Simulated assay, not measured.
Amino acid sequence: MSWFAQAIIAGVTSFVATNIDDIVILMLFFAQVNSTFRIRHIVAGQYLGFTVLIAASLPGFFGGLVLPRPWIGLLGLVPIFIGVNHLLNWQKDENEVQTVSDELNSSKNSSSAMSIASLLAPQTYHVASVTFANGGDNIGIYVPLFASSNLASLAVILSVFFLFVGVWCYVAYQLTRHPVIARVFTRYGKRIVPFVLIGLGLYILIESGSYQLLPSFR
């Protein structure tokens, strides 16, 4: 498999795995369009908050330029740990998602035209702050992913990320218009996340050659 295809797959899987909960929060925001938010506030806020998360994760890439790749690859243990933690707290995570889903079903939704002048509204920063505050797992996953990437792969991964932010906003908006689909998605979507995170961690460990640090592989 080419490096380009590998970078796309890594970008898609890491984004989806770290943003399943974000799509639920976005659904809640979109359900309040016209009463509290406008569509432009939510989209701009999501991009702003996600950009800050990326900026906070980029030191991992620069660290990867200095440290040997096998040692950097050991950071792949982080997403494995997060995935196992999600498995151990499965019921708690499901209860949190169900609470948000119930709040969503009692709200309204609508649409609004884009206006550049209002992108700096307080609602935009509110969405951005929630996106960033909810991004602890994102940083934990992105730092080792960026550290194990070269410049070309990083560019592809970031392009996938920012494309999927828009896709996520669109999907969340559409789901608010179909409560039944939204309920199924929020209930079962997070069940695959732990396994994706564990797989991503193993990918980072193998891709970086971290297994070479084990005595039997020397």
Rank of each mutant, 00 (worst) to 15 (best):
I80S: 06
V127G: 09
S208E: 07
S14W: 00
L88M: 14
R69P: 03
W168C: 05
R183T: 09
L75D: 06
P79E: 05
H126F: 13
F161E: 00
L48K: 10
V196H: 01
F29D: 10
G136L: 04
F15P: 00
I20K: 03
G201E: 08
I42C: 12
V100S: 09
T176S: 13
F185Y: 11
P68V: 08
E94W: 01
R69M: 08
D21W: 01
L205T: 02
A133W: 06
A31V: 00
V78C: 07
T51Y: 00
R40T: 14
S153W: 02
R218S: 14
I42W: 01
L120A: 14
L151H: 09
S149L: 10
P59W: 01
T131E: 12
A182R: 06
Q123C: 06
G189H: 06
F61P: 00
A55H: 03
V143S: 09
Q91P: 00
L163T: 14
F4L: 13
I25V: 15
G135F: 03
L214Y: 08
N109P: 04
Q174W: 05
E207D: 13
A172W: 03
N138D: 14
F185Q: 10
F164H: 00
A7T: 08
L77G: 15
Y203H: 11
L175Q: 10
F37A: 10
Q123N: 13
L77C: 11
G83M: 02
Y188W: 12
V156L: 00
T13A: 13
S2D: 15
F164R: 00
G11F: 00
I9V: 15
R69V: 03
I206C: 02
N105G: 12
I80C: 13
A128E: 05
F37R: 02
A182K: 07
V97E: 13
F81R: 01
L74K: 08
G49N: 08
V143P: 01
D102I: 02
Y170N: 04
V171C: 06
E96I: 13
Q6F: 07
I206E: 08
V143M: 12
N109M: 07
L67D: 03
P122R: 11
G199H: 12
A55G: 08
L104I: 13
F185I: 07
G201Y: 09
K190P: 02
V130T: 12
Q98E: 14
V84Y: 08
T51V: 06
V143E: 05
C169R: 04
Y173C: 06
M1T: 10
L214I: 14
L151E: 14
V165S: 02
F50S: 14
F195P: 07
V193Q: 09
K190I: 12
L26Y: 05
L151M: 07
F61D: 02
F62V: 04
I25N: 09
L120D: 05
V180T: 15
V24H: 11
Q32A: 10
D93G: 01
T176D: 08
N105I: 01
L26F: 02
M27W: 02
V97D: 11
V193R: 00
I9S: 15
F62G: 02
D22S: 09
N105C: 04
R191A: 05
A113E: 10
L202Y: 04
W168K: 11
N109K: 10
A44F: 07
F62T: 11
T131P: 01
L197K: 04
F162M: 10
L202E: 03
